Amino acid sequence: MDCSFTLEHIKLNTWEFKTHINKVTFAPLVVSTLFILLTSLLAHCARRVVQKVVKEPFVRLLFEEAIAAAELCGCCFELIVVADNFGVATYAIFLFALTIWWSLNWGDATACPYTHIEDVIEGKGDIRKALLKTWAELTGGILVFKYVQMYWALEISETHKDKAFEDCKADLQVPVIYGAVVEGIATCLCRLASRGLGDLNPRFATAIDSFIGTSLVVAAFDYSGGYFNPVLATSLKAGCEGHTMLEHAVVYWIGACAGSLLSVYVYKLPAIQKFVRGSSVANGDSIWAEKED
Rank of each mutant, 00 (worst) to 15 (best):
C168P: 05
W152S: 08
C188G: 12
W288E: 00
K129V: 01
I21W: 10
P202R: 06
S32N: 10
V218N: 11
N13M: 09
V49C: 04
T110W: 00
S235T: 15
G284I: 03
W106D: 03
L62P: 05
G141M: 12
L232R: 13
T134E: 08
L131Y: 01
A180T: 01
F26T: 02
R48G: 02
A97M: 14
R195N: 13
V231A: 07
R47P: 03
K146H: 12
L38G: 04
V251K: 01
P270S: 11
T234H: 06
N105F: 12
V264A: 00
C190H: 12
Q149V: 13
V54T: 06
L42E: 07
Y178S: 09
G239L: 00
Y114S: 04
D209N: 15
V49F: 11
W15L: 14
A205W: 10
L262K: 07
S40E: 13
I177Q: 07
V24N: 06
K23P: 05
T6V: 12
I121G: 03
V218C: 14
L246D: 04
F58C: 03
E290F: 14
I93D: 08
A43E: 05
I67H: 03
G242E: 01
R128V: 15
S260M: 09
W288Q: 08
V264H: 00
L79G: 02
G87R: 08
C257R: 07
K163M: 04
A219G: 04
S4V: 09
E155V: 13
E241P: 03
P57I: 10
S260I: 01
R48T: 09
I21V: 14
Q149R: 15
V144N: 06
F165Y: 14
D199A: 13
V182A: 06
S235K: 09
S4K: 15
T6P: 00
Y267C: 00
T90L: 12
V31W: 05
V264F: 07
C3S: 13
C257A: 06
L104K: 15
G123N: 02
K163A: 05
A92C: 09
A180G: 06
R195C: 10
E8C: 02
L246A: 05
L262V: 06
W15D: 14
C75Y: 01
L269E: 08
F96S: 05
H9T: 15
L38C: 11
S4N: 12
V53T: 10
D126S: 13
S286V: 11
A66L: 08
Y227N: 05
L236H: 11
W288V: 01
Y151H: 09
L236W: 02
L262E: 04
A70D: 04
T139L: 13
M150R: 14
E64M: 11
L143M: 12
V30P: 05
R191W: 12
V144K: 08
L95I: 09
D108I: 02
G141T: 12
V59N: 02
L154F: 12
D167C: 01
A130F: 08
T6G: 07
V266Y: 02
V218Q: 09
V81L: 14
R47L: 00
L62G: 01
R47M: 06
V251Y: 07
T134H: 00
I21F: 08
G259L: 05
L132A: 00
V264E: 06
M1N: 13
T234S: 14
V148W: 03
S286I: 09
L236T: 10
G225S: 00
A92R: 04
D293S: 13
